[in-house]
Design a protein around this nucleic acid. Structure first.
Lengths: 168, 168
DNA sequence: CTTGGAATGTCAACAAGGCTGACATAAAAT
DNA sequence: ATTTTATGTCAGCCTTGTTGACATTCCAAG
């Protein structure tokens, strides 16, 4: 099952052929397609795209976040994010309130309808993730997370690690 | 390290909270960004996008593949693929030969220049994958691959499994 | 053999969502 | 008080997805 010989501590003896790495690359590509497939279907019914999903997800996660905050996490330009936000606000899924301390900022919140769509999307995605986790087992899940974390860019990993438990 | 209690065989006792699953979802999102970051930079210098990378990758992998074959793997429409292929052919990175047995088909090959770019792209991507694998260790890598496979759609998993070793 | 359908690939036009540039407004600094 | 900086919005471009229309080639039914 392991991809090469190891010593007792399981470190430093990974012999990785280009072919093994290539296989990993393709696994990542194909798995990501599966990962987005279910929410994509739901989004399509509502006339939205993946960009809307990402926005809903992170607004839900960090209640009252600002536009600036959001685009740091999403890694897109504010102009690009703005288009998506505008439609979500117009459609009544997101509420944008002028900042209390800094009136340049806009604090973002999901409305009831926004929260409902977010729930539907993330439930579909969680369902697939849950099934994959169940099929692979807890040890595999731990390894999965370790490799993914190691694959992130450094600043992003910090972002990722500052997630804290939240109630919906 | 495990995500929940397990019995001796490590199966069937995964208690997955929504928060744990949400963390996995975000890990996937952020890791995929890292995964594509290095090739994206190279592509940008050449005026290409991710679509070109995918085409180069799979043409390299399955030498002489047809357009039809390719778009099944890539999961896009032939019209979309065609635009990308056309530029690659015009730029002399890909050669398109009329099929020998079926003259409707086009067999696709990388030229020397195309192979060189593919090598540069995949080397950058492999380097990140290699670093992540090294950091996480062989057991984690095995788990990573298991979860990714479980996350794919069924037909895609078949595609993925029919990969065979190839020399560049 | 011919003819009608199915398969393969190309061309055209449209939509989503990236991008940069220009700008209004608010805050901060000089 | 005025300049500089930060946040967010509006306009327009480009890549890459989409569907529709079509030419070519193959194959099967008559």
């Amino acid at each position: 099952m392991a991809d090469g010989p190891t010593n007792s501590s399981g470190e430093n003896l990974l012999f990785l052929t280009d072919e093994q790495l290539r296989k990993g690359i393709e696994a990542m590509f194909f798995a990501y397609r599966g990962f987005t497939a279910d929410p994509d279907r739901i989004l399509d019914e509502h006339g939205y795209g993946r960009a809307h999903h990402r926005a809903l997800h992170f607004i839900n996660r960090t209640y009252g976040t600002t536009v600036n905050n959001l685009l740091l996490v999403l890694g897109v330009t504010k102009q690009s994010l703005n288009r998506v936000l505008r439609t979500l606000i117009e459609d009544g899924l997101v509420e944008s309130r002028i900042g209390k301390t800094d009136r340049r900022e806009r604090n973002l919140y999901l409305t009831e309808a926004g929260a409902a769509l977010e729930r539907a999307l993330s439930e579909a995605q969680r369902e697939r993730m849950r099934a994959a986790y169940r099929a692979a087992g807890p040890q595999a899940v731990a390894g999965f997370r370790q490799v993914l974390e190691a694959m992130m860019d450094d600043e992003i990993r910090r972002q990722y690690n500052t997630l804290r438990e939240r109630r919906t």
